[in-house]
Amino acid sequence: MRCDLIISTYNNPRALALTLLSVANQTRTPETVLIADDGSGKETAQVVEAFGQAHPHIHVRHIWHEDRGFEKNAILNKAIAASDADYLVFIDGDCLIHPRFVARHLQLAHPKRFMSGSLLRLNADATAGVTEGDVTNGQVFDRAWLRRNGTTKRFSARLKAGALPQSVASLLEVIYPVRRNWCGANASAFRDAILAVNGMNETMKYGGEDKEFGLRLMNAGLKGRHIRFTAPLVHLDHPRGYRDEAQIAENRAKLAETRNSGRTWTPDGISKDALPVA
């Protein structure tokens, strides 16, 4: 089964460079790494080029569009359309993924299911201190290191850091009482299922834009499967200057409409048709 990894990014070249180093450590390398770039400057392009030169065995594609404000869903749709893989894994370009991350997503892949994970959030000070060596030697996933950096104070965070044997953690994922929402920073599904709902809704900006997509997948008959305890992912802190409370409120209304209507197709997705072509 062919698998592509889609990484969304916007003007955070340091974080992207660290993210790509964690990709290079995967036990299961994706066929292609697609950088879904929402209009970054030349520094990001230089990071992508340098990574490709340093890791010629990893196929990297840089999918870019002009900066028009927060249009993450639009660039994700371009990356999905550019892929020819069977299965797509999604992360953000400020996330460090455990060496078994891609393999775990593929292990549980099923045509009627999407995967949705979670995040271990570093604070600003810990983020500033992360080095390339911390990523390549795996220290950022060490529970003692995470504890020293204040990341695992909560019990659920300790579980996300891999405190349990995988068999126990896998069972806990199934019974843990949380909603199975699509988390755009740690998620995956078969590409055919994504195309069947026409990908992401490009009218939605920051704030729940990924959950709306997940709702349409569920309306189409897919079930969410959590991998919050068996696919560790460390999130690097960053400011969110694009946060807009009015837009978030508008997104909530769109989420409610998608949930209540049961619709699966968005006319503002990969295809701009009002309905899927028969």
Score class of each variant (00 low, 15 high):
188 S>Q: 07
212 E>H: 09
36 A>C: 05
132 E>P: 04
26 Q>V: 06
9 T>F: 00
207 G>Q: 10
161 A>F: 02
151 T>F: 05
149 N>H: 14
144 A>E: 14
117 G>Q: 03
40 S>G: 12
178 V>S: 12
34 L>G: 13
135 V>H: 02
246 A>L: 05
271 S>R: 04
72 K>M: 12
159 L>W: 08
208 G>L: 03
147 R>D: 15
222 L>M: 08
17 A>N: 08
272 K>P: 07
93 G>W: 00
180 R>T: 11
129 G>Y: 03
213 F>D: 01
173 E>L: 06
149 N>L: 06
90 F>V: 03
250 E>S: 13
184 G>L: 04
159 L>M: 13
195 L>H: 09
60 V>G: 09
132 E>Y: 05
174 V>G: 03
234 V>P: 02
149 N>I: 08
103 A>R: 01
26 Q>H: 06
126 A>N: 07
86 D>T: 11
197 V>I: 06
237 D>E: 15
242 Y>G: 04
231 A>G: 07
70 F>R: 01
231 A>M: 03
113 R>K: 10
51 F>R: 05
156 S>M: 09
136 T>S: 12
259 R>A: 13
226 H>S: 15
228 R>F: 07
265 W>L: 08
87 Y>F: 15
221 G>Y: 05
185 A>H: 12
74 A>F: 01
211 K>G: 01
106 L>R: 11
150 G>Q: 13
70 F>A: 12
55 H>E: 13
207 G>T: 10
219 N>D: 12
188 S>T: 12
233 L>D: 02
243 R>V: 09
108 L>K: 04
223 K>Q: 11
132 E>F: 04
187 A>E: 01
74 A>V: 05
108 L>E: 07
73 N>C: 11
148 R>S: 11
178 V>K: 12
258 T>G: 05
43 E>M: 14
198 N>K: 03
162 G>C: 06
49 E>T: 15
127 T>P: 05
30 P>F: 11
197 V>P: 01
254 K>I: 09
220 A>R: 03
226 H>E: 10
105 H>Y: 14
243 R>S: 13
219 N>S: 12
265 W>K: 09
14 R>W: 15
47 V>P: 05
197 V>R: 00
84 D>N: 13
239 P>N: 07
71 E>H: 11
159 L>V: 11
88 L>I: 15
16 L>C: 04
165 P>T: 12
270 I>P: 00
25 N>F: 03
240 R>Q: 14
223 K>W: 09
72 K>H: 12
186 N>R: 05
82 A>V: 10
147 R>G: 14
191 R>S: 05
216 R>N: 01
68 R>A: 10
162 G>N: 01
225 R>T: 08
48 V>H: 04
97 I>E: 02
213 F>G: 06
24 A>I: 13
72 K>S: 07
43 E>F: 13
141 F>G: 10
211 K>C: 01
87 Y>H: 14
251 N>V: 07
186 N>M: 14
163 A>D: 08
191 R>D: 02
188 S>A: 15
151 T>E: 04
65 H>C: 06
51 F>M: 04
179 R>I: 03
64 W>M: 02
28 R>P: 08
4 D>F: 07
271 S>M: 08
